[in-house]
Write a protein that binds this DNA or RNA. Sequence first.
DNA 1: GCGACAG
DNA 2: ATCTTGTCGC
Length: 234
Amino acid sequence: MNQLNILPPEPFNEETFDQIQQELVQRINLQNSFNKEDIRLVAGVDLAYWEEEGRTRAVCCICVVDYTTHEIVETKSLQDEIKVPYIAGYLSFRELPLILDTFNQLENDPDLVMFDGNGYLHPRHMGIATHASFYLNKPTIGIAKSYLRIQDTDYEMPASESGAFTDIVIDGEIYGRALRTQQQVKPIFVSCGNGIDIDTSTEVTLALINKESRLPIPVRQADLETKKHRAARR
DNA sequence: GCGACAG
DNA sequence: ATCTTGTCGC
């Protein structure tokens, strides 16, 4: 039902996708729409896929974590068939319908949402974290495990200590950061989703890191949950 | 034809 | 994202 609001009429192609995003990109807010002291619950979102009877299915898991104690407050999962193909640069159209339906199942109201993928660090500043924010009406952060090269711009490797980062600057603008969350472990790519600035995005991400992973706890937890559900699917 | 390509 | 063997490390 949410898909009717997020997806353009078929057939799906880059032109119709672009038309929707060009409207939203003008509304991006790269400043905090909240007070840092008020952050209590942070949600992490991830999906896992598989093939079933020639169809692509996926499960979306959202984990809500207490920002200060890191306790897992809630986990919700929902699965469905995925009909939108993956097109690099248009990930949000493929994953948002299921994400929005899953989000509506939450009993808690997170203050912030973290995504597995980019936000502002995107050729059109419309990575999934940014795009999703307009439907969730929540500040969002993009967390990508690999680098999406934009305009032939490579990133500078940050120093090997945890907390070290390098800005990814294109045309004098900070698109995102390569952030080292664990010493001697490859960096992750953090960017603003919407309603948050890059320094706060970095700060929140680092505050949710533990020894178990280079990914912040909400996203890591959602990733684990998603694979658990796929293994037990049916 | 070849390389790129978040998830 | 998923597939997939071995291998190194706690």
